[in-house]
Write a protein that binds this DNA or RNA. Sequence first.
DNA 1: CTTGTTCGAC
DNA 2: GTCGAACAAG
Lengths: 260, 260
Amino acid sequence: MLEARLSQGSLLKKIVEAIKDLVQDANFDCNDNGISLQAMDSAHVALCSLLLRSDGFEPYRCDRNLSLGINLNSLSKMLKCSGNDDVITLKAEDEGDKLTMLCESTAQDRLSEYELKLMDIDSEHLGIPDQEFDCTVKMSSSEFARIVRDLASINESVTISATKEGVRFQAAGEMGKGSILLKPNGSVDSNAGQGTSIRLSEPVMVSLSLKYLNNFTKAAPLSETVTLNITNDVPVLIEFAVGEIGYIRYFLAPKINEEE
Amino acid sequence: MLEARLSQGSLLKKIVEAIKDLVQDANFDCNDNGISLQAMDSAHVALCSLLLRSDGFEPYRCDRNLSLGINLNSLSKMLKCSGNDDVITLKAEDEGDKLTMLCESTAQDRLSEYELKLMDIDSEHLGIPDQEFDCTVKMSSSEFARIVRDLASINESVTISATKEGVRFQAAGEMGKGSILLKPNGSVDSNAGQGTSIRLSEPVMVSLSLKYLNNFTKAAPLSETVTLNITNDVPVLIEFAVGEIGYIRYFLAPKINEEE
DNA sequence: CTTGTTCGAC
DNA sequence: GTCGAACAAG
């Protein structure tokens, strides 16, 4: 059986909000290492990968590998029934067909329990290569969200180009064009909340769908910063940390007709 | 060429929001004195006149008179891409077909540049007489907005009448009627932010469309105060100051069937 | 096109 | 904290 107690239940709420617009149904794979999820969006364009390490839960117990098929919309509705300060415990029997969610309000005068029916979901296993990228940009997640939203009013795609001088976001459409340049002012490895940092071995330039990027920025409430990992002509990896306990990663293939 | 740097970019955002619901496309006329715009609404009922004096910009440069045809909806979208604290610089070449907007975020680690395609717009030149009015009411712009919004739920038009005793806004409709009386407590010439002041040579009474007045009050964020300039049977002039650098004026013809 | 939700303003 | 407006989803 699975039993995983998360003291910061709001993390779970934010995670589901960050995924549910991209993926309808997905398997939460639970094992000794933690809980993970991989899924593609319905158009099979973007890929989303979630990891919550076991040591982020206290306690965490998972005797046997479980694959919990969950409708994310239902889970989202259920999580809306929990308070932001609640401690949430997830439980599932080995052969059960339901996920149990226990919410303890921190004031401890309230204990709620919800059950979600599980589904059978075909999980094409997605081999996600663990690759190196030519360029890694670390920046404020809210600023990234702002840029993506702004440029979406100009065109459907954005060209992101990075050199050691900075990272530039450009879009051009019917009514005109827009270009935002962020200059680096920190190290990728530092935890400085503000500012932009760039590490690169090669200058890169990719063109990406703003609709998908906008979807990805639903994860911005999870983390102050986001990292953009870019190599020309391969899918970009956009990662948001989930507190100290894991991450959400999005992969998106660049558009073929890049602006040059 | 034109180059005009406005340290308070938010003014430009508010100006465009104050005009765009009334006018789709308009020419921004740039010359040595500054930037101005005159346009009628699509129904040719109301007239809007904007002036931004050159000394409100630093620097301001305009070698040659330019008429920049702009779709205000597009301009609004572009301006939404700028931060409220940004410094905005407008640039246009003498023979160019685009307006360039440069946004410097005050933190200065972010520089964005937007280009807006210009249009050819027939500008019927609008002779706006520089007239004296029988009555000038100066009042809080937010209070004016509130009154206009409230009365709009009662009827389509409002009767404004002013004597030296005060200014009265009245509407009567199916469900009942409303009347708001503001008593003067200051001088029109003083800069007292609060309160209402009236200067008149003749008592006046006009009936005006609340739909249009509601449109005009989009300019309220620009200025604490508004002046209503009224003479019976001629278009009223409603003026909002744009910071220290200019104004937006709206002209609206009174309805013929005044309530008596 | 309508509704619900979220964000920002007062 | 309440309200309204803009935005996104069905």
